[in-house]
Amino acid sequence: MTTAPITASEGTTTADAHLDHGHHPDLRMFGVATFLVADGMTFAGFFAAYLTFRAVNPLPEGSTYELELLMPTINTVLLVVSSFTFHRASKELMASRMGACRGWLLVSALLGVAFLGGQMLEYFTLPFGLTANLFASTFYALTGFHGLHVTLGALMILIVWWQARQPGKFTPQDHFGIAAVELYWHFVDVIWLVLFALLYLL
């Protein structure tokens, strides 16, 4: 092992300091972003399938593409607002106001849960089921897959919210958990906007 003097600040990295491990750049956010590109491609595939179905596969007599707009519009607002509240949480974090940060995190998670509730409500009031026709199946597959993402996202927000009660867990310099969940949450939000435009407005 090394005989070089070890100062207190280096204490945590001494075990393998001679292996210059301390110099690794932190690439975790890069990894998360790449993963989201991949995830986005899954949605892109779904959207492409949906658009092709709509273009070339007529629905049976009596079925329609029309959907109620009220509930999903409220849902859209909830999700967009939650992106802003999350952004606010990050701002508070950068200013080292952890209490406020946690508050905004909780608000974001609750907005996500409210979105899921709205989605459920919509599912139960729709006039068609999963296998009614091609549009119905595509509708449930797309919103369901997106809803799965929201569920995961809300859970992850709650996890970082819980972790953040520990002082020093997230600092303005080092807050990978929160940053990653934030990126993911914005991603889910953007996907919803595309989905909303394609499924409800088109």
Binding site: A38, D39, G40, T42, F43, G45, A49, L130, T131, T138
Partner: peptide, 20 residues
Amino acid sequence: PVLAGTLILLSLDIVAHTGF
């Protein structure tokens, strides 16, 4: 990921009898 999405739809066709 596109393959993954496609196979998910295919498995829905098999298991849940959707008609994609």
